[in-house]
Design a protein around this nucleic acid. Structure first.
Lengths: 153, 153
DNA sequence: CACAATTAGTTGCACTCGCAACCGTTTGGA
DNA sequence: TCCAAACGGTTGCGAGTGCAACTAATTGTG
């Protein structure tokens, strides 16, 4: 429950939704990246690239940038790190010699297969802390805000 | 609505709540910091310090760090910048000579008074994009997640 | 009283990020 | 056909950040 009415002119950070959302996103991200970093040595960009690659056969840095909403330089560097660790590999795509097709290596796929259940379990635990009837409302609100801000893909 | 059932083992970033929350928080923050930076030259740490100071008579850097959940070095640097711009001032508090009391200057209070309505209006617009019955559910869910992660003050 | 432990706040350092500029390639007109 | 514009991707750079180490002041304990 908010402690402010809709028209009030007092600013209290602890009740200010943008602040609370930021705090929540950071908290959730930490909750998650603890595992990713400790168990797999993945930072957020690295883990997002893995996630983007795991559900495709292979794609370009451009496409990864789009589907992860990261800046192309951030993607470029994440890819470079993952390639050093031999979790992904790049092959020049024959069609356009500017772009290179990025794919998970065998080791990458192995890590991905290990990673996904753990990560999804964390998400499940998180959402399980919401009472049944709140979950629907929360997800609906989340989606409405995404739409309002034009964040959907 | 989520497109995944609770027990499914497929990871799709666009439907993964931690990712969506991060994206939403960034979107909301940009939506807000556009104004703060363009109109007032405030970055996020600066704006948070202003917000923390505006609702008190004066406090220490420590207290600001607590109420904004920022690292003390981030607070320290934000305070330094705001002091350069003469939006805040510091006086050594007589009780403990390690700490210094931080206060808004006259110019700082003027900016704060101008800032708050704009910022609250943005929050109101954001939340107004939610259908009435979703708003309550969304805020309740937000609070439940904060509690689950121990984020409350 | 003395001295170790703690606290408020600052600073050096290594790292990350986004922007702008760049390289090589491809596309689309004139 | 040729050349300017656009595009995929990388890199240099400045700004910001957290950690660890630090200074200065205070507290607690023998």
């Amino acid at each position: 429950m908010s402690t402010r009415g809709p028209g009030e002119l007092r600013l209290e950070l602890a009740a200010f939704v943008p602040y609370r959302l930021d705090r929540l996103a950071v908290g959730v991200s930490n909750h998650l990246s603890d595992i990713c970093r400790a168990r797999f040595g993945l930072d957020v960009p690295g883990w997002r690239v893995m996630a983007a690659l795991g559900s495709r056969r292979g794609c370009t840095a451009q496409q990864i940038a789009q589907s992860t909403r990261m800046h192309k330089t951030r993607v470029s560097r994440a890819i470079a790190h993952l390639e050093e660790r031999e979790l992904i590999e790049r092959a020049s795509s024959s069609a356009d010699r500017r772009e290179r097709e990025v794919r998970l290596t065998k080791a990458g796929r192995r890590m991905y297969a290990e990673l996904v259940p753990l990560v999804l379990e964390r998400e499940r635990d998180l959402l399980a802390s919401l009472p049944r009837e709140q979950l629907g409302g929360f997800l609906a609100g989340l989606e409405a805000l995404e739409t309002y801000l034009g964040l959907q893909d």
